[in-house]
Design a protein around this nucleic acid. Structure first.
Lengths: 346, 346
DNA sequence: CGCCGAATTGCAAACGTTTGCATTTTTGTG
DNA sequence: CACAAAAATGCAAACGTTTGCAATTCGGCG
């Protein structure tokens, strides 16, 4: 009977059950027991558990996660940082990163982690990575894209294990990275162009970002070996600027290439458009290959031949490796093989 | 002198200064003072503060955010949820949502909040919204897209103030929403098509999602008034499936329209492609208008006429309203006017 | 020199949960 | 029925920070 509310009080004023202690009083047990019951530990009597769970449902009680996480010293949060270097500020490759982010969200949710997202502008904030890591809010960190921060990341990697980076793999680097084999991707593209009888290849895009540099290097290696000339048509990464720059490249006289390897699909699409408006037949006169295999790639006319990165697989690997590192394992970097998707532009 | 380390210990073993108390010992003050100094409160002596700050830097000490947030009962985290209903599972409109997400991240970071992202599949988890809100981890919640969860959101809205939703505004709804005036967008599109002499309009896409229904309704209102016929060409939202369905629509005999209003740019692009491969002149024979003004829209050939949603502005409004609600204000929903971007397909 | 107010600092109690250990209850067995 | 082992529960100490209040120090002024 002590379970009944005081009858001498005129109205029973339920007082939202907020803490585990409130609930414990209702159930007539100790807070510890409630905690154990709710956590699904085995050492609590089945009946007690049911009673507690029922009460919890009834008053829709919810654990104070902050208290819980604080006490257990586990946040259950994985941080995802996107550094915005270069002129990636208004980013062409965002589509790719954002898609990756989506998959990461799914993958992490699946495993019971929350995802904390932060975009940072490194040159405005030297300390971006340490600050994020040291915030004490995340148990592990995924960095999407090395941007121009390779060294910064290397610095941190020694002292901070639970971090995995999406990006390019460098011989002998110290941070754990997963990414496509950009060099191989470049190779595939060049081989395809050459197999389609191209004699002179142009690489379209910046070679500043490390991934793109690798794509170019891969293509160049093949071209050199096969005695095919290769040049760079530099552009910015911002799609609008790039469109103008592409137009300029075509306007200038040296347009003596018959094959184009674009650093990303977005550049390829812009390039395709320019060529079409100049009545340059694709693939008749000039062949074109992109990179990424974004959804748009299959939607151009003619559909774009491109080098596919398997984004979903990438996300899965990132999370896998990160969780293993969080368990103290030390892991090797992982480079995923890209794949040529032959459509109609090359 | 008690500040010096014990000299009788053979080597001084620095013992990473982890807590505010460690730091307090070093500085020879109490933990409370350190806390105040680091928090930048005015009531601590300038010299003391400097000393503490110097020590903090030296040992690169960082506040345990979890403890801090727990104690202050403030997480500093805004939750962003993306419900994945319908066949939005492998999402066509993701590009739009993800872009919005990017801007949200910027906007929130700017104001000192972190962003916690979660994608949920409502039919697998009835309780998704309550669970997220009740987790005690977020101070406010932004829902991106109502999906088919309008009612669920309404239910929650009464009891939970700090929530803002991106989506469509319904007469008399109870949750605070910001979104484009989809009806107006549809109106603009239809007006444009009719001004271009279209006699028969087709709406391409599903009318299930509430936003799309509004787009259609807006278009239909104009069409009806002007005595122009309008029909629906239903498709799924998954781009690959949609492509096939579009092809089927064209293959079937009833292709008697001369203007198409696509529910999203992505559908428009797929449609454009189909028409081109069927040698249907755009805009010569059929006019085409999209919705969103994603970057691709300007990159098609011919470039796509479309209805622009100002995503950056949307993000800013979402955050603004949310912060005001978190301060106890009650706010009206906000509908933003979309804008017709006239390019070459209509 | 003493006293008052302002400026600093210290003290200790929270915040709500988890968990090792001790204690109680239950169960099983001889 | 007694007793030991196992199961279930209670107790209380953490986790690291913030903050109201009290105590101390410091200047300034009469």
């Amino acid at each position: 009977m002590p379970k009944l509310p005081n009858d001498d009080k005129p109205v029973e004023m339920p007082k939202r059950v907020r803490t585990i202690t409130d609930l414990a009083k209702l159930a007539g047990v100790s807070p510890g027991t409630v905690s154990r019951a709710l956590a699904g530990k085995s050492l609590v009597n089945a009946k007690t558990r049911e009673k507690i769970e029922a009460l919890a449902r009834e008053h829709d009680f919810r654990l104070n996660q902050m208290a819980s996480r604080f006490r257990r010293q586990k946040t259950g949060v994985i941080g995802v940082v996107i550094p915005l270097g270069h002129d990636r500020r208004q980013q062409i490759s965002d589509t790719f990163f954002m898609t990756l982010l989506g998959y990461l969200a799914d993958e992490l949710t699946e495993r019971g982690y929350d995802l904390m997202l932060r975009r940072v502008i490194p040159d405005k904030d030297e300390d971006w990575l340490d600050r994020f890591i040291g915030s004490g809010m995340v148990e592990g960190t995924i960095v999407i894209g090395q941007s121009d921060q390779f060294d910064r990341i290397e610095d941190v990697a020694d002292g901070y294990r639970p971090m995995v980076v999406w990006g390019n793999h460098q011989e002998g680097q110290r941070h754990c990275v997963v990414g496509s084999d950009n060099r191989l991707g470049g190779k595939l593209a060049a081989e395809r162009l050459i197999a389609s009888d191209c004699q002179s290849i142009a690489f379209l895009g910046s070679t500043d970002p490390i991934e793109f540099a690798a794509r170019f290097a891969g293509a160049k290696a093949v071209a050199d070996k096969m005695g095919v000339s290769i040049s760079v048509l530099p552009t910015h990464l911002n799609p609008d600027r790039a469109a103008d720059e592409i137009a300029e490249h075509f306007a200038s006289s040296h347009s003596d290439f018959d094959g184009i390897f674009a650093a990303t699909d977005l550049l390829a699409v812009a390039c395709l458009k320019e060529m079409q408006s100049r009545k340059i037949a694709v693939p008749g006169k000039v062949k074109l290959i992109g990179f990424d295999d974004l959804p748009i790639a299959s939607q151009t006319q003619p559909p774009l031949t491109t080098v596919r990165q398997d984004i979903a697989a990438g996300a899965r690997c990132l999370v896998d490796l990160l969780l293993r590192r969080m368990n103290g394992e030390s892991t090797e970097s992982l480079v995923l093989p890209p794949k040529l998707i032959a459509r109609q532009t090359a």
